[in-house]
């Protein structure tokens, strides 16, 4: 599939209908997920606040998924020097940063009733925060270099460096957390999950994924259009 879609024209033909369809699927799934989110029985310990989980957990999952996509696209861009891969990487970053931000904000909202503070330096929150910084670094580097091709390659190298570092950072933050014996009541994985909660969680996760796929294609498409427009402008300028 990658082979076939690596051709920009074929990608454009494919994404032309795939992007809106995925977008519709995303809206339906997220709507169903949200409806379930507000109708499932509340948790006997957390009460209504558990509903934040259905927005928060899939977002945190997408934050990492997007970085994996970013790393994959960067690798393809560096090794095969493919312009579409560069565009794909560039399109991933703001989406990933958005999901990361959403995960942090909802985590913080969840923390208020759960822990009594807006922010806790717990291992997960901290590593997600570092992940957000990595995304921001990627976008800042991309924006700071004028030459587009060079900017894309530099950012791709950074993405791969980040990809190697991410597990190390995660590990070090977990290690740091055990050293400091957190006062948090939050156990890994939370209380055992009642089956009622699996459905909304799964719907939201797949819905986010479809949303990402749709927005990602739209962004890559606009990138391709922009390049074509640039080419035309250059041609017109002689």
């Amino acid at each position: 599939m990658f082979q076939a879609l690596a051709n920009p024209q074929r990608f454009m033909d494919f994404s032309r209908w795939a992007a809106p369809i995925l977008g519709i699927i995303a809206v339906i799934l997220v709507a169903m997920g949200l409806w379930l989110t507000f109708t499932v029985p509340e948790d006997y310990q957390q009460g209504d606040t558990v509903r934040i989980m259905f927005i928060h957990v899939p977002a945190a999952y997408m934050a990492m998924f997007c970085y994996a996509c970013l790393g994959g696209a960067s690798f393809m861009g560096l090794v095969f020097r493919h312009s579409l891969a560069d565009a794909a990487g560039r399109a991933c970053a703001p989406l990933g940063a958005g999901f990361t931000f959403l995960a942090l904000v909802t985590g913080s909202l969840w923390g208020r009733p759960m822990w009594g503070t807006w922010w806790v330096w717990d291992a997960r929150m901290t590593s997600v925060l570092v992940l957000l910084l990595l995304y921001i670094g990627y976008m800042a580097l991309q924006a700071a270099i004028d030459d587009e091709v060079k900017a894309a390659r530099a950012a791709s190298i950074l993405a791969l460096v980040g990809l190697i570092n991410l597990p190390i950072i995660k590990f070090s933050v977990d290690w740091w957390n055990t050293l400091h014996q957190p006062a948090s009541v939050f156990r890994a994985g939370g209380p055992t999950m009642p089956p009622d909660y699996l459905w909304p969680l799964a719907l939201m996760a797949i819905g986010y994924m479809a949303l990402f796929g749709s927005l990602w294609m739209v962004r890559v498409r606009s990138e391709v259009w922009r390049k074509r427009a640039n080419g035309l402008a250059l041609q017109a300028a002689g």
């Binding site: 570092v130 910084l133 990595l134 921001i136 670094g137 800042a140 580097l141 700071a144 270099i145 004028d146 030459d147 060079k150 530099a154 190298i157 950074l158 460096v161 980040g162 570092n165 190390i168 950072i169 590990f171 070090s172 933050v173 290690w175 740091w176």
Partner: peptide, 27 residues
């Protein structure tokens, strides 16, 4: 090395590198 050719070297380096400094600082 990554920030070569960029418009604002120093601050950019800090933004790129500080997250990667987390493990050594922790350890």
């Amino acid at each position: 090395a990554l920030s070569l050719g960029s418009k604002r070297g120093g601050v950019l380096i800090a933004v790129l590198v500080l997250p990667l400094f987390a493990p050594p600082v922790i350890f």
